[in-house]
Simulated scan of single mutants.
Amino acid sequence: MSTAQPSVVALFVSDVHLSADIPATTHAFLQFLQGPARAAQALYLMGDMFEYWVGDDDINDHYHQSICAALLDCTNAGIRLYWMHGNRDFLVGADFADRCGLQLLPETQSLRAGDKTIVITHGDAECTGDLAYMQFRKQVRNSQWQQQFLSQPLEKRRDIAKQMRAQSQQKQSAAMVLSDVDEDAVSSLAKAHQAHILIHGHTHRPALHQYADFSRYVLPDWDCDHAASPRGGWLALLSDGGLQAYDVHGEAIQLPVNRHTA
C-alpha cells in the first residue's frame, strides 16, 4: 500500500538579484516559475528579487516586462503570489503588484501551518550589528526620502542605483562577507511573534539554525552566472507541516545545521 506524498503548500525564495546582466540566473528563475512554482498553492518572494528597483515607472523596461509576465502567468495559473521588500527592491510599489497580480506584504509576516507559527522576513532589519547599514536603511525607508528620490528623472535614478550597487559590491569584496543577523535580534523577533519557525534571506548563508524555542531557516542567494557552480534554491512548506529545502536544480537537499545552546 503506497503512502501519498505531501503536497506543496507554499514556496519561499529570496535574493535572486534579477537583472539583465545575469541571463543564466534569470533563465533559472523563469524555469522555477514555470516548473516547481506551479505545484505550490502560494509563492512568497522575500526580498532582493531584483538587483535594484528605482520605481514602478521602470516597469516598461523590456527585461522587467518579461519578469512581470512570468509572475502574472503564475497568478493566472492559480498560485497566490506574495512580495516582501528587500534592501535592494524596497521601492517596488502598488503598480508593480497590480501588473504582476501579487500582494505586497509588510516587512514581517506571520503564517500558520497547523499548530505552528511561521514568521517570514527579508532579514536585513535583523543585521543590527552593521551600524552603517542600519543608518542607511533608516534613511531610504523614510517616506520623504523616497518621494524625493522618485521625483527625479528615471535615467538619473538608474544611474544613482548603479553607483550604489558598485559601492556595495566594493565594500562586500573588501569585507569578503555580508553582515550576518544579530542573534538577539532574531530571538527577539521570534519571541515577539511566538514563532516556532523563522524564515529569512539576505545573508546568503543557507542553513538551518536550531534554538531551544524555535528554528531559523536561511534562504540562499542565486547565482548561475558567476559562481563556480550554479547556486540558488528555495524552501517548501509541505501539507504535513514539514519544510524541505531544494537547490537551484530542484533537487531536495539537506541544509547544514547549526545548534544554538544559549
Rank of each mutant, 00 (worst) to 15 (best):
S143T: 09
S143D: 15
S143R: 13
Q144H: 10
Q144K: 12
W145P: 01
W145M: 09
Q146V: 11
Q146P: 11
Q147L: 11
Q147G: 09
Q148S: 15
Q148F: 05
L150R: 04
L150Q: 12
S151Y: 00
S151E: 08
S151N: 13
S151F: 01
S151D: 14
Q152A: 13
Q152R: 15
Q152C: 08
Q152E: 12
Q152K: 14
P153A: 06
E155F: 02
K156T: 10
K156Q: 15
R157A: 09
R157D: 05
R158E: 05
R158K: 14
D159E: 11
D159L: 09
I160G: 04
Q163G: 04
M164N: 13
A166N: 10
A166M: 02
A166K: 07
Q167G: 05
Q167L: 12
Q169N: 13
Q169I: 07
Q170H: 09
Q170I: 07
K171W: 07
K171F: 09
K171I: 14
Q172R: 08
A174E: 14
A174Q: 15
A175D: 10
V177H: 12
L178S: 10
L178N: 13
D180K: 02
D180Q: 03
V181N: 07
D184V: 05
D184G: 13
D184T: 11
A185H: 05
K191T: 15
A192Q: 15
H193R: 11
H193E: 11
Q194C: 13
A195E: 08
H196A: 15
H196W: 02
L198F: 07
L198I: 14
L198G: 12
I199T: 10
I199A: 06
H200E: 06
H200C: 15
G201Q: 01
G201R: 01
H202R: 07
H204R: 00
H204V: 10
R205S: 08
P206I: 11
A207K: 09
A207T: 05
L208N: 00
H209M: 04
Q210T: 13
Q210M: 13
Y211T: 00
Y211E: 01
A212M: 04
A212S: 12
F214D: 04
F214A: 07
Y217C: 06
V218C: 03
V218I: 12
P220F: 04
P220C: 08
D221G: 08
D221T: 00
W222F: 14
D223L: 06
D223R: 06
D223I: 04
D223C: 10
D223Q: 04
C224K: 01
C224L: 05
D225R: 02
D225C: 03
A227M: 00
A227K: 09
A227W: 03
A227S: 14
A228Q: 12
A228C: 05
S229E: 14
S229V: 14
S229T: 15
P230Q: 07
R231F: 09
G232R: 08
G232H: 05
G233Q: 00
G233R: 00
W234E: 06
W234K: 07
W234M: 02
L235R: 00
L235C: 10
A236K: 02
L237H: 00
L237V: 01
L237I: 03
S239Y: 04
G241I: 06
G241R: 01
L243F: 15
L243I: 03
Q244I: 05
A245G: 02
Y246S: 01
D247L: 12
V248R: 13
H249K: 12
G250K: 06
G250S: 07
A252K: 11
I253S: 10
I253L: 11
Q254E: 15
L255F: 06
L255K: 04
P256L: 08
P256R: 05
